[in-house]
Design a binder for these strands. Structure first.
Length: 797
RNA sequence: GCCGAAGUGGUGGAAUUGGUAGACACGUCGGACUCAAAAUCCGAUGAGGAUAAAACUUCGUGAGGGUUCGAGUCCCUCCUUCGGUACCA
């Protein structure tokens, strides 16, 4: 055995190359009786800056679990790919003139090298990249299937528009309403764009969250995003100088408050604002115009609820025929409900704020059990005509019935979720497989003509049109194929389209004939562990679920949720506790850490930093502590002998059991603490049992694949440690004979007593009273004793 | 604004179901080794009180209130920080 001190540089490269060459992490067979494990990491965006230490955290988590289940004999897969289309590469191209394709491919090479250095057990035969034609051919194919099913359509929708640069801006390129490049005022401009009809799936997307094992907070955010609410849809008759034969439709969850509706609010985009009978039409138009300078986020967050009265137009309350004034205000959005609300200031905070500002009447119509300044809950109706005295629930039912009988409304389920706008006026994305005839009618491209390849003769400089518009080759390609005046769609797809199905493509990356093999997918999916950042909790997950449900409906797969167990990794912050960014100069490169300490230290340190899902700040010194731990493991290899030790057997069995459970719960930081405790224990032993040490190395292998492989080999064992079976816990070694119990008097701990396991109350009580510190608190009589087996005894005096 | 989360020693964190708060690690202090330093090893380490030393004792999990024999954990109100908010991915 070696007496050289621990130096990972001496052997990490050697093993990395050997593992890759031997393909020891090849995806398992699709018919394993022990079952399967699909360990999925959200495929990263290959940024030019290289792998971020936060990626390392998520990937190592996926890797530990994948390695664990390989030891346990399951079929395991851990694939990797690239979310390669996107804005940063295009912006980089605008700045440097280097084609996105070029710098993306360079970045991917760096990523692969880094991922291999870290020792992630990826099966590289499954690699995908969303920018490759062999991949996006199938993204386009999905578009066509959705189109055929009537789930892809075109409509007008606003974009952020910079009038000076004549270009569409992403939200993050708009800073305080100004263009980030030229600082001119950004306006909302309507454009004809493609949508996917995700709203057809809203009920299922909502309900099926019950089927998956995700953090409750994530489910809750998705539910709120989908925004299912049960309420009432109803029509208010409109009136100007004369009765109009027009209605204003609203949705409300609180029809029981309608007698308190003292004004209506409509969105600036609402069609009734085109009504000729509006008296202050110029003022209204001015307001609508102001709205065009606000983003939707601005509209919702602004503290000041702006708005103006629409003069000459009134709504009539169907229940009491009262005339209600109408306001236009930008806090009402046109794409939720009908773009109009009935406002009840007495029982809604936003309405109250607005009413106070505009001096609108406030009528209380609900009385609660408790007196409060403002009552927004259900209660009993007052000031509500014949409905007074009813509870909110009763009133809702009766009112809905009345509306239905009079053809003025009905109960309805409403959703906040909107259709998915996928058009992007950009170059570096997947081309939309649509061709227009000279009259401008859209036609889907024939499936046999896919992929519609992204042209390369483009100029990235922003002009008023999509960059592809100016590709001569693209123009010619369409005319050659379809005839003069025909042209391809020049917008590309939102990158969320690419990322909504990549986890289905891994299993047949080279298959040109079909998107996936149903039977294979039915074995491997849903995924068993999906690691994604917290920032993906809503959109990416929602869109992937939508696609999966669509494929299910098409009969292509037999599962309708893609991700069974999903967990998040938290953000890793710089040592200054700030988000890592060039601006703060606190960005860490995983390569530097590997050069300093080796990959095993980096892996274990990141897992030891704290709970997976928490945000954590980097600490170089703590990282050094992990290196110290691995050095001790290294040195202990010299103490291994052919001996038997019952204490060592007991300790290793305790450790195996704890590590198993911690891996299954993704509680890696506590598993590592237990490894350290074991090392503290075994350091005190004169020599170490070879059998115990072998088990120790195997269970440490998922965390530290390099050092364990090296020590395994130095011990003279057969290659590779990573293909060994997981040691079986010997329960007979785990029987505890004694437990220590807390003795409390009036809830305060006054002593500790060691008793045989499962001792009865009498036994413990007798011992506890004998404790001299406890007994001095027990003067006077014991009124009551609370006894919790093996935990605590509490005397109340 | 709305939705979601977090807050525990000097620091990162532990406490599986409401049952001995502070495991493990970093740092610091003391000691060993050394000509010396680094590295390594051993010991101490929440704050205060008490003691020759100990036993012991009071306080203590962002702030305030509540439920309970018992609260870091459950409930209410508030503060701070972070993530998302539909074109960053």
């Amino acid at each position: 055995m070696s007496n050289v001190s621990y130096n990972p540089l001496n052997f990490e490269k050697k093993w990395q190359e050997k593992w890759l060459k031997d393909k020891i992490y090849k995806t398992g067979v699709s018919n394993n009786p022990n079952g399967k494990f699909y360990s999925l990491y959200s495929y990263p965006y290959p940024s030019g800056a290289g792998l971020y230490v936060g990626h390392v955290e998520g990937m190592v988590a996926n890797d530990i679990v994948a390695r664990y289940y390989r030891h346990k004999g399951r079929s395991v897969t851990l694939p990797m790919g690239w979310d390669a289309f996107g804005l940063p590469a295009e912006n980089y191209a605008i700045k440097t003139g280097i084609a996105p394709r070029e710098n993306t491919d360079t970045a991917i090479k760096t990523f692969i090298e880094q991922i291999n250095n870290i020792g992630i057990s990826v099966d590289w035969d499954m690699e995908v990249g969303s920018h490759e034609p062999r991949y996006y051919k199938w993204t386009q194919w999905i578009f066509l299937q959705l189109f055929k099913a009537g789930l892809a359509y075109k409509k007008n929708a606003p974009v952020n528009w910079c009038p000076k640069d004549e270009t569409v801006l992403a939200n993050e390129q708009v800073i305080n309403g100004k263009c980030e490049r030229c600082d001119s005022e950004v306006v909302q401009k309507d454009m004809d764009q493609w949508f996917f009809k995700i709203t057809d799936f809203n009920e299922r997307l909502y309900k099926d969250l019950d089927k998956v094992d995700w953090p409750e907070s994530t489910k809750s955010m998705q539910r709120n995003w989908i925004g299912r609410s049960e309420g009432t849809k109803l029509k208010f008759k409109l009136k100007s100088e004369s009765e109009l034969d027009k209605y204003l439709e609203v949705f409300t969850t609180r029809i029981d408050t309608i007698f308190g509706a003292t004004f209506m609010v409509i969105a600036p985009e609402h069609p009734i604002l085109e009504d000729s009978s509006i008296l202050n039409i110029e003022e209204v138009k001015g307001y609508i115009n102001d709205t065009k300078h606000k983003s939707e986020l601005d509209r919702q967050t602004s503290k000041e609820k702006s708005g103006i009265k629409v003069e000459g137009l009134l709504a009539i309350n169907p229940f009491n025929n009262e005339e209600i004034p109408i306001y236009v205000a930008d806090y009402v959005l046109s794409n939720y409900g009908s773009g109009a609300i009935m406002a009840v200031p007495a029982h809604d905070e936003r309405d109250m704020e607005f009413a106070k500002k505009h001096n609108i009447e406030i009528i209380e119509v609900i009385k609660g059990d408790v007196e409060s300044e403002m009552y927004t809950d259900y209660g009993t109706l007052i000031n509500s005509g014949e409905y007074s005295g009813l509870t909110s629930k009763e009133a809702i039912n009766k009112m809905q019935e009345w509306l239905k009988n009079n053809n003025l409304g009905s109960s309805e389920v409403n959703f906040k979720l909107r259709d998915w706008l996928l058009s992007r006026q950009r170059y570096w994305g997947c081309p939309i497989p649509i061709v227009y005839d000279p009259e401008g009618n859209a036609h889907p491209i024939d499936e046999s003509d896919l992929p519609l390849v992204l042209p390369e003769d483009v100029d990235f400089k922003p002009t008023g049109e999509s960059p592809i518009e100016r590709s001569e080759e693209f123009k010619k390609r369409a005319e050659d194929k379809y005839g003069k005046g025909w042209h391809y769609e020049v917008d590309t797809m939102d990158t969320f389209v690419d990322s909504s199905w990549y986890f289905l493509r891994y299993f047949n990356v080279n298959d040109d004939t079909k998107i996936f093999d149903s039977e294979t997918l039915n074995f491997w999916l849903p995924t068993d562990l999906y690691m994604i950042g917290q920032e993906h909790t809503v959109l990416h997950l929602l869109y992937s679920r939508f696609f999966t449900k669509f494929f299910y409906d098409q009969g292509l797969i037999n599962f309708d949720e893609p991700f069974f167990k999903m967990r998040h990794m938290g953000t890793i912050l710089g040592s200054d506790n700030r988000k890592m960014s060039k601006r703060w100069g606190n960005v860490l490169n995983p390569n530097d850490e590997i050069d300093k300490y080796g990959a095993d230290t980096l892996r274990i340190y990141e897992m030891f930093m704290g709970p997976l899902e928490d945000a954590k700040a980097w600490n170089d010194r703590a990282e050094n502590g992990v290196f110290r731990f691995l050095s001790r493991v290294w040195d202990l290899n010299e103490k291994v002998r052919d001996i038997n030790s019952n204490t060592q057997d007991i300790e290793i069995n305790k450790l195996i059991k704890k590590v198993e459970s911690d891996i299954e719960h993704l509680s890696f930081n506590t598993a590592i603490a237990k490894f350290m405790e074991f090392i503290n224990f075994i350091t005190r032993e004169e020599s170490i049992s070879k059998e115990v040490w072998s088990k120790f190395l195997i269970i440490l292998a998922p965390f530290a694949p390099y050092i364990t492989e090296e020590l395994w080999s130095l011990m003279g064992n057969a290659y590779s440690i990573h293909t060994q079976s997981w040691p079986i816990v010997d329960d007979s070694k785990l029987i505890l004979d004694n437990v220590s119990m807390a003795i409390q008097v009036n809830g305060k701990v006054r002593g500790v007593v060691s008793v045989p396991l499962d001792s009865t109350e009498e036994e413990v009580s007798k011992l506890a009273r004998g404790d001299k510190n406890v007994s001095k608190y027990l003067e006077g009589n014991i009124k009551k004793t609370i006894f919790v087996k093996n935990k605590v005894i509490n005397f109340l005096v």
